[in-house]
Nucleic acid binder design. Structure first.
Lengths: 239, 239
DNA sequence: GTCTATACGTAGATAGAC
DNA sequence: GTCTATCTACGTATAGAC
């Protein structure tokens, strides 16, 4: 990873975060559910009702991504969280609502992470490059969250209206692109096309980067992807 | 759409196709299942066993994309196809197999369509541009098939090995890209990055184009998308 | 707020006639 | 090859004690 960007792991553990909810390393989340009893002991001192809620959300996230929505009984979700079915339905009215909550929590966390990485003092081009890098890093370090997002997004039966609820959190990114076009940093491409190209390409780079060992190889993939993006959208030559 | 490319509807109805299977307009497929009895009469003269199989596949496609996999009972699929549960399980060993067959049929048809649109006599750059256009046209005119592909691809519980079975059908596209790089038509970007950028961007353009009325507006979206792609990957300036 | 126990519906798949 | 009828099992969500 280039200078100015800290390791994703450091980011997840060291930086202040706006919400906890699903914010845990994959390893930690896995341990939680594999040994629900141990988890309960660990959480004993902070054993509020919110903890139960979060444990359920994490358990649902992991099971949905590995088994899918339909193949995951609510009983298994609650068991994975170390609580009972009754507790689950006390915190969430039904399975669909629980699923939506998982989605919203992930989206909010991702948006917050991108915002944290943004330095408004920098020129727009650097901000956009930084945003794309940060997005890629988040994706690589949050494979389960990303898998769930894809799963949920393409699933027709899971409440459509929920998808729109997070639009506002990413509004500033659209504005940032518009600013770049106004400044002549980005070619005058219709905004939907511009935004789609950036996000879809970045998303593809995440899959590529995740499939490659961390270090030089991964950096090369990211850099190559960024170069193609800027060749594509940049007003001038490569940068 | 630019010269040299026929209207998607003409493509679907007028050109010779290698397989029928799921190849029908959305409207026709919808009518089939909305009135299963009428369908049966229509098909009476050609009422082979293959027809039943195809009707089941089409019914499954439509229901999966509108309701999702888990929310679609096999009984509803067979009813939509105008046949019985028994008939469904005579043709497909189980629901998962049926789902895989839908996926494979769609992929094969898409691959065949792309191949048909390719003119090997043309220079590589034109062939690639043509392939991307054809891909976008196919996507716009096959929304259900595309929705299913996305649904299936991101679903963890549906047999993973199936995804790989269609790789060979698209192999030539990878070779085409490699050829373009060798000829200096495309910048020397690592192949996975190159291919990902093209496919992901094109896929995004499909969503954009589909959301816009056919005609000039849609053409502008496609042209803008192609311009960005070629700026991104092209060795020289825009084309 | 969390538990146990269970009601109620429904889904996938089979059996056996035609 | 297609049908009807059905078996078995499971999943969601609730009831009511603690």
């Amino acid at each position: 990873m280039p200078p100015g960007y800290c390791d994703p792991r450091r980011t997840a553990e060291g930086l202040p975060r706006p919400r906890r909810l699903l914010d845990k390393t994959d390893e930690a989340a896995r341990e939680d559910a594999d040994d629900a009893a141990a988890e309960r002991v660990t959480m004993a001192d902070t054993g509020t009702s919110d903890d139960t809620r979060e444990k359920i959300l994490r358990s649902a996230l992991r099971l949905f991504t590995t088994q899918g929505f339909h193949a995951t009984p609510t009983a298994q979700i609650s068991r994975g969280a170390g609580v009972s079915t009754g507790a689950l339905f006390h915190h969430f009215t039904d399975k669909a609502t629980l699923t939506s909550e998982v989605y919203l929590a992930i989206k909010r966390e991702m948006a917050a992470d991108l915002r944290e990485g943004d330095d408004m003092a920098l020129p727009v081009r650097k901000r956009i490059t930084g945003g794309i890098r940060r997005y890629i890093e988040w994706g690589v370090s949050h494979p389960e969250e990303r898998a769930f997002l894809n799963l949920f997004y393409h699933s027709p039966n899971i409440c459509d209206a929920v998808k729109d609820r997070t639009y506002a959190d990413f509004r500033w990114l659209h504005d940032l692109c518009a600013e770049a076009v106004a400044e002549g940093v980005i070619r005058d491409v219709p905004h939907p096309v511009l935004f789609t190209v950036i996000v879809r390409t970045a998303d593809g780079i995440v899959d590529l980067a995740a499939a490659v060992p961390p270090g030089t190889a991964r950096e090369e993939v990211v850099d190559a992807g960024l170069a193609v993006i800027w060749h594509g959208i940049g007003a001038e030559g490569p940068g």
